[in-house]
Design a protein around this nucleic acid. Structure first.
Lengths: 172, 172
DNA sequence: ATCTGTTTTCAAATATTACTGAAAACTCGA
DNA sequence: TCGAGTTTTCAGTAATATTTGAAAACAGAT
């Protein structure tokens, strides 16, 4: 193996390992993040077995996390003609990755929060004590803010990257 | 206990429980989120023992998570004159909560990612193969985007709520 | 200096989450 | 319809994260 190839392998391995560690702090499981890193930096879409081998993980694990990445929309399944098995290709465009992650996190983190806040505000609507009103107000304020944040996230996700950059440069 | 008080207690308990569950998906531990919910809706700042009792948790657990909330800046320690023990008061202003969480998540999630990307881009700088260049470009693009996102987060966090609203209404 | 109520620490116990390995269920070609 | 290659599932196991409980440290009050 040439010097250059070795260097590249080292850099890539580090990226995979570190991205995995980061994933953990992001509330994403380590393996899923590692696979994502691997696919993002793969010259050709790997198969399940390639992933298993590179990361030294079991078939079940590789399969589950690849499926999860596909469910997020961060990875596409590719079928090659004449090949039975599936290959996996990561989205590499940073703005697309960003909008996908933003949408997904909104769906998982923001929408359920809104639901909770709405229900709590509703349930405390009619409580006539001072404490009751304070609680109701708190729920309402939180709910309105989260609603606002949610809308903003939608708007930004729907933008083209160029437009976002342009807007940013105008404002800041 | 009056009807109204019971209703309120029920609503509050639900909020605490659900906020705790949400916290989990946010990558925040359940107890920390529950305590936060409890404090946000407390008419008076509770003591460690109050928290222990309300949530039925151990002293060590209550203590650790209260400290963590204080470290985030979401909770303040209050000392009452003539009282030896400490009471804990949550920040209730939604915009402040948002900016604190944004800052903290940036510090924990974005900054380390930037660091990794920068190092990988640097290490692959000099690799002259096609694959090497592709890897380097990928790292650079990711890095530049994360850098951009990071700056935006800073700017937004530094805004006054009114200004943010105004800006939002102008743009969307 | 000692006592008392309180906070802080941390090793051990528990709970949660992720992973493995192997078997079952597909899929397509012959 | 059968069989080889591949994907999917899942019960058991391993790894990780959280919580407990009890002891140590601390800070006034006497």
């Amino acid at each position: 193996m040439s010097e250059a190839t070795q260097q590249l392998k080292a850099a890539r391995d580090e990226f995979v390992a570190q991205w995995g560690a980061l994933g953990t702090q992001w509330g994403i499981n380590r393996t899923m993040a590692q696979i994502h890193a691997l696919l993002m930096t793969a010259p050709e879409p790997p198969s399940t077995d390639d992933v298993m081998e590179e990361l030294q993980i079991s078939r079940g694990n590789a399969h589950t996390n690849l499926k999860e990445l596909v469910a997020w929309g961060l990875v596409r399944v590719v079928v090659r003609k004449g090949e039975r098995r599936e290959f996996f290709e990561a989205e590499k465009d940073v703005w697309k990755i960003f909008t996908i992650v933003a949408r997904e996190r909104k769906r998982r983190e923001i929408d359920p929060a809104l639901e909770v806040l709405r229900r709590c505000a509703e349930e405390s609507q009619s409580i006539e004590t001072a404490e009751g009103r304070a609680f109701h107000d708190q729920m309402k304020q939180l709910g309105e803010f989260v609603e606002f944040a949610s809308r903003m996230a939608d708007k930004v996700s729907a933008m083209k990257y160029g437009f976002a950059l342009q807007m940013a440069s105008k404002f800041f």
